[in-house]
């Protein structure tokens, strides 16, 4: 089982660190991807994580009201809701992605949330995309879904200055 945990630099990532310092174990299925803020969470990137075999995704940001960038975690919550809609349409269970809020001092909570997400995901069984993963052409898939950013993946929308030729260049 693989669960990608998009973790905010200012809270969840530090909390995961703290969990380690406190010698608290959490499931090995959790693969942490540090993000500068959960507001950085990109719907397409999360879809790519699922496409390439993630059984579950947890998004862990600061407590509501405590976002280092004011509202990143609130934006992330709405994007998680959107991903739930998108993966449901695709044929995956919406429970495969959840949002959690915690502070950097909450190492134990991080471990608890990781356990909760692992159990929830395990109850759904492996992702049907995992079994099939790797057989289909990955052309055009863009990033690897694990936090890397493909040039031109349109995070800020395509540049309106782009000429068709220049655009072609970026597509290659």
């Amino acid at each position: 089982m693989q669960i990608v945990a998009y973790s905010c630099h200012y809270c969840a990532y530090a909390a995961a660190d703290l969990a380690g310092v406190l010698r608290l174990s959490y499931p090995a299925a959790i693969r942490i991807v540090e993000v500068p803020c959960t507001g950085r969470l990109d719907v397409l990137e999360v879809l790519h994580a699922f496409e390439h075999g993630a059984d579950g995704v947890m998004v862990a940001g600061c407590l509501e009201g405590d976002c280092h960038f004011q509202a990143g975690n609130l934006n992330a919550r709405r994007r998680v809701a959107r991903v739930k809609e998108l993966i449901t349409a695709v044929g995956l269970e919406p429970e495969r992605i959840e949002m959690f809020n915690l502070s950097s001092a909450m190492g134990r909570q991080f471990a608890d949330y990781a356990v909760k997400m692992t159990q929830q995901t395990a109850s759904l069984g492996p992702s049907p995309l995992r079994a099939a993963s790797g057989r289909v052409s990955r052309t055009g898939a863009g990033g690897d879904g694990l936090g890397t950013r493909r040039e031109g993946s349109g995070d800020v929308g395509p540049s309106t200055q782009k000429t068709p030729a220049a655009h072609q260049e970026r597509q290659r």
């Binding site: 397409l44 995956l92 993946s153 349109g154």
Partner: peptide, 17 residues
Amino acid sequence: EKEAGILATSLRMASKI
């Protein structure tokens, strides 16, 4: 660009499933 990517990814995943 973003929505085209989301739709293409969704269609790939759905057809695989």
